[in-house]
Each structure stands twice: as structure tokens, then as C-alpha cells.
């Protein structure tokens, strides 16, 4: 199938793109095209004018500071995944990106495009919510910053106005004494997840669990983050299976696993239980390892 005819603009600056987008009716922004072009080709979407933002130099930057990672709207999944400083400052980014599609799709698809596409089966919208990311959107009317609760308003639906372009995303650095993990079950590596889970675990000064948050992929209508602190806060040493089971049940009470051709609702619920336990434990181990490293354990001090 081929897309229906449309007009094409490739502005060279953001200012030009904002004006073109404000003046056009029924226009869409094209970034990596890895979600938009299939929809156009299958004629599930149509557009009078396509505004291609890939020629806008200022949108292609990645900046890393100790506060976090900032990346523009044409930064590819593969650029972020290969960036060593990004991994050092916020290890959740590569942990999750590794599961986004196949390498070939990641070479073209953008992470900002993925977040504003707002697919609750995508990894990065959930990571954006889990890490309390901020999205900058601009229009000829001005600039605003959005967090996940304001951005994701329905399945594949955001609060962006018809003239607003997402320009960049900021994801905060991993805080001290915190650890992360991400895992998912898919039919094949690179396919959309049947269920995916990312977790961030924080420890207090004595090494006991102080906070646990988990983000879920493919088991809700909008990217969903659940606070799993209640059954886990205060634990030290090996987390018990009972506590992890309770965390899985707590997560399920906030999610709506549904059946489709890939999996039954029952199976998805089971994956939520299994993955919650696995990922929370891995994030806790990561937090312990990071705390030890930064405080310099006796064994480190000797070597």
C-alpha cells in the first residue's frame, strides 16, 4: 500500500518549521518516520502536508551534564544508545533502548518521536514517565514544558496542540544510592513487548530500601508508573519472595492487561508478576552495587 498524496516541506531552521506548522492545516511533523510512514502507507493516517524536521541542525544535539541528559527531536535511538556519557549519567536509557525495535529501526527512529507518539507499548514513553522526564514543546505562541501526566492523555494521544513541535526531552540523572533495571518478554528480541518493566530502587544511608517505582509497557492504555514502596521499603539484604509477590499484585491493581493476538490477558498478568519480581530485584542489586562503588568498599580501598 502507498500513502495518499501530500505536500512536503523541509525547513532548515526551527523558526521556519514553527511558522510553516502554524500556517498549515492538517499537517504532521515527520521525524524518523518509523511509526508515521507505516500508518500513512496502510492509510490508517493521512496528511495534507508533511513537515520534515530532519534538516534542522539545532534539533540533533545530545547534551549530558551531572543533572541529566537532554536530547533534541532528531536524535536517533541508536545515537543515544551508543553514547557512553548518557549511559554513565542515566543507565536506564540504554537499558530500555536496547529493547526498542531492531537496530535497523533504531538507526532512523527518534526517541523524542517515540515519546510523543505516546504508544503505551513503546519502551521510551514509559521510561520518560518513570524518570520524571520533561518534554519541551514550542509553537509560534511560545514554549512550554510538559511532564508525563500532562503529556499522555489517552491511547496514542498527547496534549500537544496542532501547532506545537516537540523540540527536546530532558531525563534527570540517576540519583546517588539508586539503581535501575529494565526487562521485557517479547516474541522475538526487537518485537514490541508482550510486557515490559523498568524499575528504579533507592536506598537510604543505611542501605535499606527507601523507594521503589516501576514503569510498565504494553499493559495499560497510557504509560503507567506504579509506586511499589509499600511492601518493600525498609528491606535490607536479600528481598524475600513474599515481598516481591506482593509488589507484583500491587502493580497489577494499577494495570489493565488485555488480550490480543499475541497474548491472553491472563498470560500478560502473569508476566507482570514474574517481571516485577525479576526487575525490582535486579534494580535493588544495582543500587547496592552502585552505593558500594561510590562509597569505596574495603575491597575497593585495598586494590
Amino acid at each position: 500500500m502507498k500513502p495518499a498524496p501530500f505536500g512536503y516541506r523541509r525547513p532548515g531552521s526551527l523558526a521556519e518549521a514553527l511558522t510553516a506548522y502554524a500556517d498549515a492545516s492538517d499537517a504532521k511533523i515527520g521525524a524518523g518516520g518509523q511509526s508515521l510512514i507505516p500508518l500513512l502507507s496502510m492509510r490508517l493516517a493521512s496528511v495534507a502536508e508533511l513537515i520534515d524536521i530532519n534538516g534542522i541542525e539545532e534539533l540533533s544535539r545530545i547534551t549530558v551534564s551531572e543533572d541529566g541528559v537532554r536530547f533534541g527531536a532528531t536524535v536517533r535511538h541508536s545515537d543515544l544508545l551508543a553514547h557512553e556519557q548518557v549511559a554513565a549519567v542515566q543507565p536506564m536509557i540504554p537499558a530500555a533502548l536496547h529493547h526498542v525495535a531492531h537496530a535497523t529501526i533504531r538507526n532512523r527512529g527518534t526517541t523524542v518521536g517515540s515519546i510523543v507518539h505516546a504508544d503505551a507499548s513503546g519502551e521510551m514513553p514509559t521510561v520518560f514517565a518513570l524518570l520524571d522526564g520533561r518534554l519541551t514543546v514550542q509553537s509560534v505562541r511560545g514554549t512550554r514544558e510538559l511532564a508525563a501526566p500532562e503529556l499522555f492523555i489517552g491511547p496514542l494521544e498527547t496534549s500537544l496542540a496542532a501547532d506545537e513541535i516537540a523540540t527536546e526531552v530532558f531525563l534527570p540523572a540517576l540519583a546517588p544510592r539508586h539503581g535501575v533495571a529494565f526487562d521485557e518478554i517479547a516474541r522475538r528480541h526487537g518485537d514490541y513487548a508482550l510486557v515490559g518493566v523498568g524499575a528504579v530502587v533507592g536506598l537510604d544511608a543505611d542501605g535499606a530500601i527507601a523507594s521503589v517505582r516501576a514503569g510498565y509497557v504494553s499493559v495499560s492504555e497510557v504509560p503507567t508508573v506504579v509506586d511499589l514502596g509499600e511492601p518493600l521499603v525498609g528491606h535490607r539484604g536479600e528481598i524475600t519472595d513474599d515481598a516481591l509477590r506482593a509488589a507484583g499484585e500491587l502493580a497489577l491493581s494499577h494495570l489493565e492487561p488485555e488480550a490480543d493476538i499475541h497474548a491472553t490477558a491472563h498470560y500478560r498478568a502473569q508476566l507482570v508478576r514474574v517481571l516485577t519480581g525479576r526487575v525490582v530485584r535486579a534494580a535493588y542489586d544495582d543500587a547496592v552495587a552502585r552505593s558500594n562503588r561510590s562509597e569505596g568498599t574495603p575491597s575497593n580501598a585495598r586494590s
Binding site: 518516520g33 510512514i37 530532519n54 532512523r108
Partner: peptide, 13 residues
């Protein structure tokens, strides 16, 4: 040099 889907790019782009 990077593998890319030719069906997910427009020639004009």
C-alpha cells in the same frame, strides 16, 4: 553506511 528500511523513508527525504 547504516542499515535502514527503504520502505520507511521518502525519496525526497
Amino acid at each position: 553506511g547504516k542499515p535502514t528500511r527503504a520502505c520507511l523513508m521518502f525519496a525526497v527525504a
